[in-house]
């Protein structure tokens, strides 16, 4: 059974079932189990709860702009959605500022895939997005967002997650746009047994500057926070990963892991990683790995000895470097799309 209009079906693929389009003309629901309100709508039953959550958010997020027109997207309690829920933003204006609050109510389960469509790719644009994701008790949410805008778009993405008791939030993030990019992804594990897994991958090219901050605060016992960042810097691009794992006192049996790696392909490309573990509790497991490396000469020689050009060999190794992260993306169509974006980016000639 399929109820998406043709245009969306073409964009999302034949298997897509649920879509929410957020554009200039307002909202368009296509067979989604989601409900949408604005924060200004005071009749909303969860109003008090949202206010309380916002209090948490204000401090760590640098670009925080809650407003009456903040969209509140909700997945009702105990609703389990098998197929991905596509949330599509359509950008017309030169400046885009949007604040979205996504709530997965208790015992709900879904995979969200965020899309952005730009009307005019040649027009300079500023995109500032703040997203809050709240995963309530025992809920499971996967949130995937991969941007690949043209050079004219400047991006500033702030994402904030709150994960309650025994709930799971999985971030699958990819930054493949060509303009300067700054993202922050902060998740708080506030309930016992809450889990967050965050993967972020990126490719830097040209003169691009990219900086990504990923932070998981573990504020309750039995929580697990795993951060994986892989970046590839080409040409004269600059990349930076800040990875922060924080475990509060009393969050016993918590597990915090992080891995931040860059592969630098060209002499003038630069990359830095700043892994930080802040732990205020004895009874925990924690570990981090960070590296900035180049493609090994022997490896290149090996691949070239089988007929691959220097460029092809580099592209293959780069793809291989990102592959373990690509493989964590659960939706097959998204994975293929992603592979295509990455293949195109790594095989572009300098």
């Amino acid at each position: 059974m399929n109820m998406l209009p043709e245009q969306l079906q073409t964009y999302l693929g034949p298997d897509a079932q649920h879509a929410l389009v957020i554009g200039e003309e307002g909202l368009q629901f296509n067979n989604t189990p989601l409900t949408v309100n604005t924060l200004g709508d005071t009749t909303h039953t969860n109003q008090a709860y949202f206010q309380q959550v916002m209090q948490r958010t204000v401090q760590p997020l640098t670009t925080y702009r809650p407003a009456d027109d903040t969209l509140v997207i909700e997945l009702a309690a105990e609703v389990v959605v098998e197929q991905p829920l596509h949330v599509i933003y359509v950008h017309h204006e030169a400046v885009f500022r949007r604040h979205v609050l996504f709530v997965a109510q208790p015992f709900s389960e879904a995979k969200i895939i965020e899309h952005h469509i730009i009307a005019d790719a040649h027009q300079p644009m500023l995109i500032e997005q703040t997203l809050e994701v709240i995963v309530r008790d025992e809920a499971k949410l996967e949130y995937a967002s991969f941007d690949a805008f043209a050079e004219m778009a400047q991006l500033q993405m702030s994402r904030f997650g709150i994960v309650e008791r025994s709930a799971t939030l999985t971030w699958s993030l990819g930054s493949f746009s060509s303009g300067d990019t700054q993202t922050e992804n902060i998740t708080q594990l506030v309930g016992a047994g809450a889990t967050c897994q965050s993967t972020l991958m990126t490719i830097g090219m040209g003169e691009q500057k990219q900086t990504h901050l990923v932070r998981i605060d573990q504020l309750a016992p039995y929580t697990s926070g795993v951060i994986t960042n892989h970046g590839v810097m080409r040409e004269r691009s600059q990349g930076n990963f800040d990875g922060i794992g924080f475990i509060e006192k009393g969050a016993h049996q918590a597990n915090a892991q992080q891995e931040s790696r860059f592969m630098v392909l060209d002499d003038q490309a630069k990359a830095t990683t700043n892994p930080i573990l802040l732990i205020d509790e004895y009874d925990v497991t924690a570990g981090h790995a960070a590296s900035v490396g180049r493609v090994d000469e022997e490896t290149l020689y090996y691949l070239q000895s089988r007929g691959l050009s220097n460029h092809e060999a580099n592209a293959l190794v780069t793809l291989g470097f990102l592959m373990p992260l690509i493989e964590t993306v659960s939706d097959e169509r998204l994975r293929e799309k992603l592979l295509h974006v990455i293949e195109t980016k790594v095989s572009q000639h300098v």
Partner: peptide, 13 residues
């Protein structure tokens, strides 16, 4: 063609 004495390992490929 050279079958190497110590072939390289390449992850992800």
């Amino acid at each position: 063609f050279l079958a190497m004495q110590y072939p390289s390992e390449i992850g992800g490929v």
